[in-house]
């Protein structure tokens, strides 16, 4: 796992960190908690091109469905196949075993559109009030 400091976040509660120039993407604690027990993850296709902040996956619980937006543009390199049989990995380990996809970033400058860990923490505090 990357250090917490290396994660970047979106307003829709996706996270991303960069490992050897590959972006690893998932959903944050706040989102998994809001959804409850996740029953299904619709994964993107490997090789698919995604746009920053466009929908590229979705997760379902018993009572809600939620779209997942790409934190960064690029090509899908790999998807977490384990989620097909065990979608609960997102509930159990949203920052590690519950990662959703790896993206080959098209433009690393897009990082500037994301929140740092610190900014995201502040953002969450704002949501609670």
């Amino acid at each position: 796992m990357a250090n917490q400091e290396e994660y970047f976040f979106t307003k829709e509660h996706e996270w991303v960190y960069f490992e050897d120039n590959v972006a690893v993407v998932g959903v944050a604690e706040y989102a998994q908690n809001a959804l409850g027990d996740i029953t299904y993850v619709e994964l993107p296709e490997v090789g698919e091109d995604v746009e920053q902040f466009e929908q590229f996956a979705s997760v379902e619980s018993v009572k809600a469905a939620s779209d997942i937006f790409a934190p960064i543009s690029g090509k899908i390199m790999e998807v977490n196949k384990k989620l097909e049989a065990s979608p609960e990995l997102i509930n159990k380990s949203c920052y590690e075993k519950g990662w959703i996809a790896k993206i080959q970033p098209a433009d690393l400058n897009e990082k500037n559109n994301l929140m740092s860990q610190e900014e995201y923490t502040q953002f969450l505090e704002g949501l609670d009030t």
Binding site: E60, S61, V62, K63, A64, A65
Partner: peptide, 12 residues
């Protein structure tokens, strides 16, 4: 699989 249905997903 009620998340497929209108009372949850509405226009989607």
């Amino acid at each position: 699989l009620q998340v497929r249905e209108q009372h949850i997903r509405r226009e989607k």
